[in-house]
Amino acid sequence: MRHYCKEASHLVSDAYERELKFTERLKLRLHLMMCSLCREHVSSIEFMNRLFENIRSQADEKGICLPEKARKRIEENISKAVHSDRP
């Protein structure tokens, strides 16, 4: 029997990127009704999307700092620019 999982996985991703055509939505919905593996796949794709939403909103709060070496370098370059070329 020919399975539709591969095509379905593409539509699952595309659903986040564009509006699916009516026939695509229908095919996908019918397939998901029959296929528990793809339902599992859908929930992990939803999981990843929530994950990245969280990462985007928390990027500001994470505690990494500009490394000292890079800070020094930027400081020197700024001071070079500022003193050689006053706007």
Partner: peptide
């Protein structure tokens, strides 16, 4: 080749 998963997606 028949379009189904080689490895079943697990639940997270």
């Amino acid at each position: 080749a028949n379009g189904s998963w080689v490895e079943a997606p697990a639940s997270w």
